[in-house]
C-alpha cells in the first residue's frame, strides 16, 4: 500500500495516467494521491523539431516518479520542462500545460525565478561551485536575500543533514566543495538544491557518474527526501528506477522521432507486468 504524506482532509484530485488507462484497482490506488505536477498535452519543440509529443501524465506528490526510455526519447527534455529549464535552449518552445500546485507554469507572464526555486534540479555530473562547502549551500539562500549569518548557518546545517552529508563535512565547511569525492559532491549539489526550500526535486541521471556505493547513498537519500519533497528522476538505469521509484513513466520516440509517453503506472507493475509490448521489450532488454 502506498502511504499518504499529505493532508487527507481536503479533496484529492485524481491522477490521470495519460497514455494508458489504468486498471481499476490501480486507478483506485492512484486516485488517492494528490497531484503535484499535472502535465497536460505537453509538446516541446526545438525550432521545428518536436522533441516530445503530447505527453499527459500527473506526477503524484511525495512520491518518486522515474522517467525511463531509450537514448534520445526526450526524457531529459520532459524533465527540464518541469522547471522551464527548456527556456534556456535557444529556439525551444512548449505547447500544452504544466500545472504545478494548480498554476500553469507555461502560462503567459509567469516569472521563472520563483518556479526554479520551487522546483530544484540536480544534474548528471556533480557541479559544485568553486567555493567552500558552506558557500555552495548558502549560495541560493543568499541570492534570495538571506543575509543573517545565524540564519544561513541554520539553512546550511539543515540542508547538509537532509542530503546525508553533514556528518562527513561538518568539520570542514570552509574547505572547497571541489575537494569532495564524486558521491559527496553530488550530495552537496542536492544540499544546494534543498537550501532554497523547493517542493519538487528533479534529478537528471543523478548517479550515472558515481560508483555503486555512492549510487546507493543517493538512492537511499531519494527515499528519505520523498516525505518532504516530490521527486522526479530521469535514469538510463532501469534497475535504479525499479529500486527507487514509486511510479515509472516509459517514453519512446515515434515515427517522427518525437518522444511519446507509452506507459505510466506503479513501478511494481511496469517492471513485472507491463501492459504495452513496447514497455515489455524495453524493460526486458529486447528493445530495438
Amino acid at each position: 500500500m502506498l502511504t499518504l504524506a499529505n493532508d487527507l482532509s481536503r479533496p484529492l484530485p485524481m491522477v490521470r495516467t495519460g497514455a494508458v488507462p489504468a486498471k481499476e484497482e490501480e486507478a483506485a490506488e492512484i486516485q488517492t494521491l494528490p497531484v503535484k505536477i499535472d502535465i497536460r498535452g505537453l509538446s516541446i519543440f526545438y525550432g521545428k523539431f518536436r522533441a516530445i509529443a503530447e505527453v499527459t501524465m500527473a506526477i503524484p506528490a511525495h512520491q518518486v516518479t522515474a522517467i525511463i526510455g531509450p537514448s534520445g526519447c526526450g526524457k531529459s527534455t520532459l524533465l527540464r520542462a518541469l522547471n522551464r529549464m527548456t527556456d534556456l535552449t535557444p529556439g525551444a518552445h512548449a505547447e500544452g500545460d504544466v500545472i504545478l500546485d494548480g498554476e500553469n507554469i507555461l502560462g503567459p507572464g509567469v516569472d521563472v525565478v520563483p518556479i526554479r526555486q520551487r522546483v530544484g534540479m540536480v544534474f548528471q555530473r556533480p557541479n559544485p561551485f568553486p567555493k567552500s562547502i558552506y558557500d555552495n549551500v548558502a549560495y541560493g539562500p543568499r541570492l534570495y536575500g538571506v543575509r543573517k549569518r545565524v540564519e544561513l548557518d541554520g539553512i546550511v546545517e539543515r540542508s547538509l543533514k537532509q542530503a546525508a552529508l553533514w556528518d562527513e563535512v561538518k568539520d570542514k565547511l570552509q574547505q572547497s566543495g571541489m575537494a569532495l569525492s564524486g558521491g559527496q559532491q553530488q550530495r552537496l549539489c542536492i544540499a544546494r538544491a534543498l537550501a532554497v526550500e523547493p517542493s519538487v526535486i528533479l534529478m537528471d541521471e543523478p548517479a550515472s557518474a558515481l560508483d555503486p556505493i555512492a549510487t546507493l547513498k543517493i538512492e537511499d537519500l531519494m527515499q528519505q527526501l520523498k516525505s518532504e519533497y516530490t521527486m522526479v528522476i530521469v535514469t538510463h538505469n532501469m534497475q535504479q528506477a525499479a529500486r527507487v521509484a514509486d511510479y515509472t513513466a516509459f517514453l519512446m520516440i515515434d515515427g517522427e522521432r518525437a518522444g511519446r509517453l507509452i506507459e505510466y503506472g506503479p513501478t511494481s507493475r511496469i517492471f513485472t507486468k507491463p501492459e504495452k509490448k513496447e514497455t515489455e521489450d524495453y524493460v526486458t532488454g529486447r528493445f530495438g
Partner: peptide, 9 residues
C-alpha cells in the same frame, strides 16, 4: 541477468 516483466515471471 536481472530479468524484468515476463522474463522475471
Amino acid at each position: 541477468q536481472q530479468p524484468m516483466a515476463r522474463d522475471l515471471r
